[in-house]
Each structure stands twice: as C-alpha cells, then as structure tokens.
Design a protein around this nucleic acid. Structure first.
Length: 695
DNA sequence: TAGTGAGAGGTTTTT
DNA sequence: CCTCTCACTA
C-alpha cells in the first residue's frame, strides 16, 4: 500500500507574520499562545490586557482558526471595535470578521433569529430604561397602587428592585431587606408587578436590557440543539472585563463555551465597579469551579503609568478591605508625582483645568490625550460652561444621553410603531403628542389598535369623527401609512416625520430651536443605517454618547478634550488625567456612605480613575462646594476620604496652591480680571455670611 | 377629560 | 434643579 503522509498544517513559529515572542512579555506570551481549554487571566490596570487579547485574536487567526468562529465579548462596543481595529492593524483585515460586541448586542443578534423559540417574534423592539419605567408606571396605576394611603415606591425604584433581583438572582425579599427596608411590606405587590411587567413586555413584543440576557440564557438552556449549534459556531470565546459580569452573563458565557470549553476570560478584581448592576467579582474567583481545567495567568507589569502614579494607586488599593490584588510595577521613567490641589471652589477648579489644558496643548499634548474624570455626570457642569467660554472643544461620555431627550424619543416613537405595531409604549407616547389627546384617549386608541386588531386604521375610525383632534389623527395616519409603504431606510422617512413633528416641537418646547439641531444630528446619524431595525436597536443598545449641542462643534473626534464618568472611562487611558470633585459625598458618592461594601466599590472606582493616567495625574478637591440644588447656599466639604487616608503616608503627592497673578506691567489682562471677579464674589459671600451669623 | 399651576420629593454609575 | 403628582378649571 502506498503511504500518503499528511503534512502538519500547524505553522512553525518562524512562519508567523508577527514575532509574538519579542512583542510580548513572558506572561503575556504565555496567555496569548494558550489556544485550547479554559484560560483565566488576572491582569492589573495598564498591564496590557487589551494588547493580550488583541494578540491572541491574531494568534488564533494565524493558527488557521476561522475568524468567524471567534467570539469576543466586551463590555462596550467601543472596546470591541478598538480591539478588532488593533488586531487588523497588527495582522490583517481577517480580524474584522471576528464575531463580537457586548453581551447585550450579541444576544440581540442571536435572538433576532431565534426569538420565536422563546415566544417572541423576531421583530421585537429593545426598550430603554425610560420605556421600562413607563410600563411599570402603567402597571402601578392600573393596579391602583399609587392611590394607597401608604406611599408606594416610585416606578423607578420598583424597576430597580425588579431588575436587580433578576441580575443578582437574589429574591425580591432579600433586596428589600438589604436596600429598601421601608418597602418590605410591599413585597407581594412588587413581585406581582414584576410578573405583570414580564408578561406585558412579552405581549407587546418588547425586550428590556435584562431580557436580552435572560432570554439568551433561556434559549440556550431550553434548546439543546441551538446551544450545541451556537457553541460549535463560536469555537473560541473571549471575554474582557470579566470582573464586571454578573451571574447571568457568566452563565451565558459558560453555556456558549459548553461544547468545547475554549474560553478565555480576562479581568482584574481591583477594578470591579458594576456591583449596582449585579456584577460580582467573585465570578472571577469562581471561574475555575465551572471549568476545573482552567489555566491561570497573571500579568503584573504595568506599561501605562509612571512609577509615582503607581505608588499612589497601589496605596489606594492597599487600603481596600479585601485585598486580592497584586503589586503593580513599571519600567516607565517619571519623577512627577501626582498633583494634589485644593481649589477654592468648583469655578476655580474649572479655571485651573482650562488653563492647564491649554498649557499642555501648547506643549504638544493633543486634546484627545487629556481626560477629565468624575463620579457622576453632573459634576462637570461648571467645567463645561468654562470650556465653552474658552472655546475648548470637548466631548462628554456618560451622563444624560442624547437619546433620552424628550424630543428625540418623540421622533423615535414614530419609527417604533411602524416597526413593531404592538409597541404600546411608543404608541402612547406618540398619541399623546396630539393636542387634545391625553392618557385616556391614548389608552383607548392603543386598545383599538392592538387588542381589537384594527391596526393603524383605528386612527381614522368613524367613531372618532367630530372630535377636535380628528384631523391631527388623520395626518398621523397618513404619515404612518406612508412610512409603512416606503422602503426600509430610516433617512428617507425623516423629512415626512419632521413635517409632522415640527408644529408639535414648537408648541411643546420653548427652546425648540436648540432641539431642532438635535433632530438634525439624529438625521445625520440615521444616514449610517440601512434598516429601521438596526437603527432602532442601536439607539437603545449603543446610543450616541454625546449629549445635546453642548460641545463646541468640531468635525474631528480627535480634536476634543474628553470628559467622562469614571465608569465610562474604563479601559481607556490618557497622557494627562484630572480627577475632579474629590469630596466626601461626591466621590465617594453620598449614596454609598452607609455601607462598607459600597465604600469599597467607590474605592475601586477611584483606583480605576487614577490608573487611567500615563504621565500626569491631577487630583482636585475643591474646598468650597455649592449645594447641588441652588447656587445660593454654600457648604464646606471634606476632601475625599480616599485622599486623606493616603496623605498621612506622605510623599505620594505634590501639593500645589493656586494663587492669582497680576501681569507684570500692572495691567490686568482679561483672564486675571475674571479671576479677580471670582475673588470679589467670594469676599462678598464672606461678608454676607459674617453679618448673617452675627445677627 | 385635557391642560395647568402649585407643591413635594429625590437625586449615581450602564447595557 | 427637575420630575412627578394632585387638585382645580375650562
């Protein structure tokens, strides 16, 4: 018999187009080249987590694994795109074919094909938080619970409880006991609302964020064949930021990997900052329990920050109650310590940042390499005003989203009802835009449209003739009819929609001019989409981040200073980082002061903030803080406990004092004048306070 | 039954 | 400051 020798198809090392050995350190290399079986990578901040994942994608592809069979789950779409882009850069465009995205968007992708197996139709609509709240509100008022003697929790609170119960798999009772003891008596009602809410979403063909996860798990657990099929389609599963996954996400990921166990998760317990959403960093610790064959890799060398910055961050995490952490080290030279500043107030804080930013820009640091971080969206308000005044362009991540603005939701509602006619939430919003139509009429009409199955014809039913809003309903009908007729490109529909909406926006909002600009940007965004489904889904799942027309308009994203909540800053890094509002009650948030666990989470959050910095880190703790609700009352606040607890160890930071400088020739330039104005205002306040006190 | 104005109460982080 | 509710008016 003739012997036919099969060649070893595995390439030899020297055939790789990338020299993995020289481009990665040993720890990274070991992780990257582990192809099969479960892998757990514990990697500290700035140790090249992303780099490791990127190289692993390239390595897998170079080993002949089809890119389509690699599933990369990340926390944000930004992160996923970034990784694929980088992988393509180091290897080639094959890497663009890697499957992935957020847990939610991947669920959406899969469920669009299989929703029928879990009693949904495939054209379900993804609803956002506000929509969920309205549905809950609707159920509450239907049950008459808002009319009770005892105050019933608000719809937002009810949604929080229900959602948390799903995400953490704690019972409603446990959550009530722990976080809302004042509502323990309402346990039965809340559970009931939860049930009706689930049912209500199903009949209206709506899925909220939680549903995307739970339905995916449902699909995978109840349909053996689908699970096998999906698992065999996605042969290599990789998950970033594993410390921020919750129970359901961990289950979801494990199920997809169930057939082959080729799953790599990457995380850092010190950066777990999403416990409010049910994230549990123990998922990391427990990973080897689910996959006993797990190989553990740790990566400790930091490639981002200078040693003085690491000295500080190591100290921050050293103070954590539970220390799983590793001591990070770096080779990066740097002698500048983090700078600690106590400005007089928020305004001085804003002025300092503007001035420093301009200085840095003169020194050649691009704006996009500078980040300003804060605990909550509104902390940057004063800074935004100052930036606008000084014409420094910026973009803001986190906080109120463009998509949440009322006028945007109005317009989106029109598309929603045409896409999914059962979308009662959108119907009610849309119908109430018509003058003369309130909750009752809208409710009646929705019932006609859905339950009595008349579709949009119900809007021009004869029984409505004679009503004062009849003609408006008629034009709405015409609009919807036209949209249903036209092809599926959102942008082609907008002119007609604006024609309908234009009188409404003028009547409804005093500041309609500004809002019309938003509609214009919505139009531009829609231009990128070829189908309504994709457009609507992205609007709820991955909405455009920047809010309003606030930022000074620039075309290039690159030319903007970045303002961001710490949560949204995860995984990013900047040459220079400013952390602002480091005051007890702001950061850590006053909301967290009661429980030691949430303080711990705030501490990790602070750790995440500081570890974003490569070269310069500025910590700002304004001395005088205005109350959140009015600019009249002044209160003094303590610097953040995270700062005071590390200060006694000394020498970790350099203290700067801000003083006012008059120009040499005695002339006061405009900027100094501004500073002087601020000063006299403070003097004025001091005088007023003094006399108030001595009355 | 829709629209309006006064008063109260809450307030983070994200998909 | 903003959102929500409630009671009143048209």
């Amino acid at each position: 018999m003739k012997k036919f020798v099969l060649k070893n198809t595995k390439r030899k090392k020297e055939n790789y187009s990338i020299d993995y050995h020289s481009e990665l350190n040993e720890q990274q290399y070991n992780a990257v080249t582990s192809i099969d079986g479960p892998q757990l990578i514990i990697a500290g901040a700035g140790t090249g987590k992303t780099r490791t994942l990127v190289y692993r994608v390239a390595y897998l592809v170079e080993n002949g694994i089809k890119p389509e069979s690699i599933l990369l789950l990340t926390f944000t779409r930004k992160a996923a795109q970034e990784m694929m882009k980088r992988a393509s850069n180091i290897l080639d465009e094959r890497c663009n074919r890697v499957a992935g995205g957020t847990f939610h968007s991947f669920s959406n992708f899969i469920l669009r094909k299989y929703a029928e197996l879990i009693d949904y139709s495939n054209n379900f609509t993804v609803i956002d938080r506000a929509d969920s709240e309205s549905l809950i509100g609707y159920i509450i008022s239907n049950l008459g619970l808002n009319k009770k003697e005892r105050r019933f929790p608000r719809k937002r609170t009810v949604l929080n409880i229900v959602s948390k119960s799903i995400n953490t798999t704690y019972s409603v009772r446990e959550i009530l006991e722990k976080e809302y003891p004042q509502f323990i008596e309402e346990e039965k009602e809340i559970i009931n609302i939860g049930k009706q809410y689930t049912h209500g979403k199903k009949t209206r063909n709506l899925m909220d964020y939680d549903d995307l996860l739970t339905n995916m798990v449902k699909l995978l657990t109840e349909n053996e064949k689908i699970r096998q099929k999906l698992s065999n389609t996605y042969n290599y599963v990789m998950i970033d930021e594993y410390q921020d996954t919750n129970h359901i996400q961990a289950l979801y990921a494990s199920l997809i990997a169930s057939e082959h166990e080729n799953i790599m998760v990457v995380g850092d317990d010190a950066q777990s900052i999403y416990s409010f959403r049910g994230a549990n960093f123990r998922n990391i610790m427990d990973f080897p329990i689910i996959f006993p064959k797990t190989e553990l890799h740790t990566i400790e060398q930091n490639y981002r920050s200078t040693q003085p910055i690491l000295d500080l961050t190591n100290q921050v995490i050293e103070n954590a109650e539970e220390k799983y952490s590793k001591e990070l080290f770096t080779d990066i030279e740097g002698i500048d310590k983090p700078i600690f500043i106590v400005p007089k107030d928020k305004f001085e804080q804003a002025r300092f940042i503007c001035q420093k930013v301009l200085e840095l820009r003169n020194d050649g640091v691009e704006l996009r390499n500078i980040g300003v971080l804060f605990r909550a969206g509104f902390h940057s308000n004063e800074l935004e005003i100052e930036l606008n005044e000084q014409n420094i362009p910026f973009v803001k991540f986190g906080g109120i989203k463009f998509i949440e603005a009322a006028h945007i939701k109005d317009v989106i509602a029109i598309l929603r009802v045409t896409y999914n006619q059962a979308d009662a939430i959108a119907w009610i919003r849309l119908l109430q835009l018509i003058k003369g139509v309130g909750a009752k009429t809208a409710d009646y009409l929705v019932n006609e449209i859905l339950v009595n199955d008349q579709g949009i014809k119900a809007l021009i039913s004869d029984t409505l003739k004679g009503k004062k809003y009849y003609s408006d309903l008629q034009s709405l009908y015409n609009l919807l009819d036209q949209i249903l007729e036209t092809d599926d490109e959102p942008i082609t529909m907008f002119p007609k929609i604006f024609e309908f909406y234009s009188p409404i926006i003028k009547q409804k909002y005093d500041d309609y001019k500004k809002r019309e600009l938003d509609l214009q940007s919505l139009l531009e965004i829609s231009d990128r989409y070829s189908s309504t489904e994709k457009f609507l889904t992205d609007m709820s799942l991955e909405p455009p981040e920047t809010s309003q027309v606030k930022a000074v308009a620039t075309d290039k994203d690159d030319e903007n200073l970045i303002l961001s909540t710490v949560h949204s800053a995860k995984g990013l890094e900047w040459h220079t980082v400013f952390v602002i509002q480091l005051l007890d009650g702001f950061f850590p948030s006053s909301y967290s002061l009661e429980s030691p666990e949430s303080i711990e989470e705030e501490r990790r959050l602070f750790y995440v903030a500081c570890t974003r910095a490569k070269k310069n880190l500025f910590l700002l703790s304004p001395n005088l803080s205005f109350s959140r609700f009015s600019s009249e009352t002044i209160s003094y606040s303590e610097p953040s406990r995270f700062l005071t607890e590390i200060e006694p160890f000394g020498e970790l930071t350099e203290r700067w004092e801000l003083t006012f400088d008059k120009s040499e020739n005695g002339q006061i330039d405009e900027e100094t004048q501004l500073l002087e104005d601020g000063k006299s205002k403070d003097t004025f306040n001091r005088i007023i306070n003094y006399f108030k006190l001595s009355e």
